[in-house]
Amino acid sequence: MTCPVNGPRAISEFAYGGEIRPMPDPTTCSDDAWADYVFNRNGSPGVKREWWCHTPSNTWFVAERDTARDVIVRTYLYAGDS
C-alpha cells in the first residue's frame, strides 16, 4: 500500500481502521439506526473508502480499495468530509 506521506510499503506496516461510515446524529437518530451504525458493516464487494494507518509513523489516511478485485485504487490524506 502507498502511504500518502511515506510512499509504498509492505502491507505489514499498515493497520486497518474500518470503512469510513457517516455517524448518524446521536441526538436525533433512533436506537435502531444507531445499532445499525455500531454493529452492522457493509459486506458487499466493491470500492470502499477505508481508514488505514501507517503504524511506524502513526499516519492515518484514506484508502479507496476495490474489495472485489483486491486492488487499492488510491490513497490520500483525510480532507474532512464523511
Partner: peptide, 20 residues
C-alpha cells in the same frame, strides 16, 4: 489507544496535539 485517539482527531480536527 494512541492510534485510535489519533484517528478520532484526524476526523474531528480539534485544535490540540497528542504525544505518546
Amino acid at each position: 489507544i494512541y492510534r485510535e485517539l489519533s484517528r478520532w482527531n484526524t476526523l474531528w480536527k480539534l485544535d490540540c496535539g497528542i504525544v505518546n
